[in-house]
Simulated assay, not measured.
Amino acid sequence: MSVDGTAHGPLIEPMRAAHADQVLAVYRLGIDEGQATFETTAPTWPQFDASKLPDHRHVALGTLAGMPDRILGWIAASTVSDRCAYAGVVEHSVYVHPGGRRRGVGLALLRALIASTEAAGIWTIQSGIFPENTASLALHARAGFRVIGIRERIGRHHGSWRDVVLIERRSPVVT
């Protein structure tokens, strides 16, 4: 059964070490496409694991290329600051395997993250998205994120300056 209660959507579950190879493979695909991150290589699993909040990372499982129980996508959150004033603010990343796109995977993952963060008292989820990644911007808008602004020429990526659209979702239930 999927996160939305239908038999057709992806199954969302907590990310575990057993998912490591597939999670990092999906991450590498996103890196290789060049529109998802400033990163140019995927981290090792211990690096990834140490940088993500354990209660706020999820995977979407489904059938991919005829193989069941494959990772269709993942979402994970990190702290934005060690300062106590920012205890309720996280930054997230969401990656969907090219073969899992247009199947509701991204939205299901965002909904799972929103549920886990709100249950933990987190009031803001934020992220930075390249403006060229229009699919991700549209997905986040559907999930209730808003554009805060554009950070112009914030970083270099493959020798070119890149802008980043700063987005956030403020919880209507955590105050």
Rank of each mutant, 00 (worst) to 15 (best):
G62Q: 13
S127H: 02
G66M: 08
A87F: 01
H92I: 02
A143H: 10
M67D: 15
T134Q: 11
G104T: 09
S78Y: 00
F130H: 04
R101N: 13
V147H: 05
N133K: 03
A119C: 06
R142I: 05
G144W: 06
R111T: 14
R101M: 11
G66I: 12
H92Q: 10
V94M: 13
A108K: 05
S78D: 04
W123G: 15
I122A: 12
L113Q: 01
I71M: 12
E91M: 05
G144H: 04
L64T: 09
T134S: 06
A87N: 07
L64F: 09
D69P: 08
T79M: 01
I75H: 02
S81D: 01
G62Y: 12
L139D: 12
V94A: 13
A60D: 09
S51N: 11
A119T: 09
Y86W: 05
V96I: 11
S127T: 07
R70Q: 15
T63K: 12
I129P: 11
Y86R: 03
K52Q: 13
G62P: 04
G62R: 15
F145N: 04
V90N: 11
H58K: 10
V80L: 09
L110K: 14
E118W: 14
V94P: 05
I122G: 14
A108M: 09
R142M: 01
E132I: 00
A77S: 03
A141R: 06
A77I: 03
Q126G: 15
P68R: 04
H97V: 04
Q47N: 02
Y95E: 13
W123N: 13
G62N: 15
D82W: 05
R70T: 11
H92G: 03
A77M: 01
V89W: 13
T134G: 00
F145H: 01
R103N: 06
C84H: 03
I129T: 04
I148P: 00
S81W: 00
L61W: 07
S116H: 07
V59Y: 10
D49R: 00
S136C: 12
I122S: 14
R70C: 14
Q126W: 03
L61N: 10
W74F: 15
V80I: 12
L72Y: 10
A65R: 15
P98M: 09
R70H: 06
D49V: 01
S78H: 04
L109M: 14
A115F: 04
Q47D: 14
L53T: 13
L53G: 01
P54F: 04
A138H: 01
L107Y: 14
E132K: 14
T124P: 05
P131G: 05
V147C: 12
A138C: 02
G104C: 06
S93G: 08
F130V: 00
A112I: 09
A77Q: 00
I71R: 10
V105H: 03
A85N: 03
G104S: 06
P98H: 11
A141E: 06
P54T: 13
I114T: 11
T63Q: 14
H140L: 02
G88P: 07
V147G: 06
I75K: 06
L110Y: 07
E132H: 13
A50E: 15
H140N: 05
I148W: 03
D49Y: 03
Y95A: 09
